[in-house]
Amino acid sequence: MSTESGTGTAAHAATVGALYAAFARGDIPAVLDMLAEDVRWEDWADNFAQRADVPWMRRRGGRDGAAEFFGIVGGFDIGEFAVLEIMAGESQVVAEISIDAVVPGGGRFRDEELHVWSFDGSGKISRMRHYVDTAKHIAAANGADTTSR
């Protein structure tokens, strides 16, 4: 772990913590600055939410693609967004998240998610994946309230 270059376990965890703080205050330019120019967003070999074309789960590339994601999420009515835990390794950070949101079109989901952030050698985020209950996200994207039983 290198502390001089600002990379490594503690620095990566601090970056992800700062990213969520910037997101909470609506500072998307600060979030985008933490990303590598060629960041891979929702880069999956296969994902059912992507097959169903859930707008916020689409594969994107670069900071412009990430900005597009935040533009979509900016349209959510988020009732709860809590970072429960941040766990860090040498090149990845995992955040446990609790979220309750109404999405454009009126669908709603409450989910417990894992967000996996990968870092490049310069300390920038090079990949992001949401590990979610894809069935809830697909249903919410189609207008369902998945919180009803």
Rank of each mutant, 00 (worst) to 15 (best):
F23M: 15
A52W: 08
E90I: 07
D46F: 09
F76I: 03
G8C: 08
I86L: 10
I28R: 00
M57S: 15
G79R: 13
A21H: 11
S91Y: 00
F76C: 01
S98P: 00
A36H: 15
M128G: 09
K136W: 09
M87W: 05
D145G: 06
F69N: 04
F70W: 12
A88M: 07
Q50W: 11
E37S: 15
G79V: 02
G123D: 09
V16H: 06
D53F: 08
R149Y: 10
T147S: 06
G143C: 10
A24H: 06
A45H: 13
A67T: 12
G143H: 10
M1C: 02
F81N: 11
N47Y: 07
G121W: 02
A52R: 05
D133S: 10
F70E: 00
D38C: 03
F48Q: 14
V54I: 04
R127C: 05
I86C: 00
A95G: 10
G143Y: 12
P104D: 09
D111Q: 04
W56T: 09
S91T: 11
P29G: 12
N47T: 01
A82Y: 03
A30G: 11
W44S: 08
V16T: 10
T134S: 12
L35K: 07
V39L: 04
L32T: 11
T147Y: 02
N142I: 01
R127H: 07
R149D: 14
A21W: 10
H12Y: 06
E90G: 15
W41Q: 00
S148T: 15
W56E: 07
A11K: 03
A13S: 09
A101W: 05
G74P: 04
V83C: 06
A67P: 13
V132K: 02
A30P: 10
R110I: 05
R40W: 03
A11H: 10
G107A: 10
H130K: 07
S118C: 05
